[in-house]
């Protein structure tokens, strides 16, 4: 039974990835302005993304059923649930504000992360070791992945903001035409404010993750904070984003500098999730790889 469920989960996931790939191409074409029926490409891309998203939910739920627990207990599952959260935040925010222009980035990122983890870090369903048997696994890890979703959008918007600033600074026609593909995006100040609003949500969730992690560490390892590598990186990420928030109210730092910090922050999130999980040794050795 377990096997059947996890096989269907894998099947669903690969189908979702296929759809994301198609959506990625459509979004990219739309951005590049190569295709004539621009608006429609993005709209089709979005529908396909929704479809892929539905399949990814199926994949994740089946994996959870196969394992009889939450599907976020090893590297492969973190990637599956984490990218699902990135997608959710993107699609849900998009219901309220049109951010289809981030579609290429988000589908591309999710595809990359899923592709790497499904091919290199796939592991069969195994039971939880005693240290992970805790409701804190449910809360702490889930909120962390959710925060990642917000930070990812914050990164994309900050990147767009930096590019947009270039376009706005362009003085010659030649320069302006190079950045023409950005003309349908909001102006840099709007992008910046938007990034900020998403990042503060991410920051609150990350603060919670940090505290919940400490509470759990106290129960599982007998101390709430021990500068384990994963704890160190969680702290670093938190500090970078605190820096970002300060930069927003520091003269001379608002704008491109604070946007750069937001991007570095997300870089650290990804680093924490990939390099730290796989190559660093510490108590958080739950990638499921050996």
């Amino acid at each position: 039974m377990t096997d059947t469920f996890s096989q269907f989960s894998v099947l669903s996931l690969y189908s979702a990835m296929g759809l994301y790939a198609v959506a990625f191409i459509l979004f990219t074409l739309d951005l590049s302005g190569l295709a004539s029926a621009k608006a429609r490409l993005a709209r089709i891309g979005l529908s396909i993304t929704w479809l892929g998203f539905a399949l990814q939910i199926v994949a994740t739920v089946l994996r959870g059923i196969a394992a009889s627990r939450v599907p976020w207990a090893n590297m492969y599952e973190f990637a599956m649930t984490g990218t699902l959260m990135i997608m959710s935040v993107f699609l849900i925010v998009n219901l309220k504000w049109d951010i289809r222009y981030l579609g290429a980035f988000i589908t591309g990122l999710v595809l990359l992360l899923l592709g790497i983890s499904a091919t290199r870090y796939y592991v069969e369903v195994v039971p939880l070791p005693p240290a992970l048997q805790s409701y804190w696994l449910v809360i702490h890890v889930f909120v962390a992945t959710l925060a990642t979703g917000f930070f990812a959008l914050g990164f994309a918007l900050s990147l767009a903001q930096l590019l947009q600033e270039r376009r706005e600074r362009a003085t010659t026609d030649k320069q302006a035409s190079r950045w023409a593909w950005l003309s349908r995006l909001p102006n840099s100040v709007t992008l910046e404010n938007f990034a900020y609003r998403l990042i503060i949500v991410g920051f609150v969730l990350w603060t919670f993750t940090l505290i919940a992690g400490a509470v759990w560490a106290e129960k599982a390892w007998g101390r709430y904070w021990g500068w384990d590598v994963k704890e160190v990186w969680t702290f670093i990420i938190w500090t970078i984003y605190a820096g970002y928030l300060h930069a927003r109210s520091t003269r001379g730092w608002r704008g491109s500098r604070s946007a750069t910090l937001a991007m570095i922050g997300f870089g650290a999130v990804i680093f924490n999730f990939t390099v730290v999980n796989i190559f660093f040794k510490g108590l958080h050795a739950y990638s499921g790889l050996s």
Binding site: W227, D228, V229, I236, G243, K281, L283
Partner: peptide, 24 residues
């Protein structure tokens, strides 16, 4: 305040690269 925050983030990095007496 901003610079010190960023400095703190950077200063925390080496402790994850080199084993620490307190944790390992």
């Amino acid at each position: 305040a901003l610079l010190l925050l960023l400095l703190l983030a950077i200063a925390a990095i080496p402790g994850s690269l080199v084993p620490q007496r307190s944790s390992d």
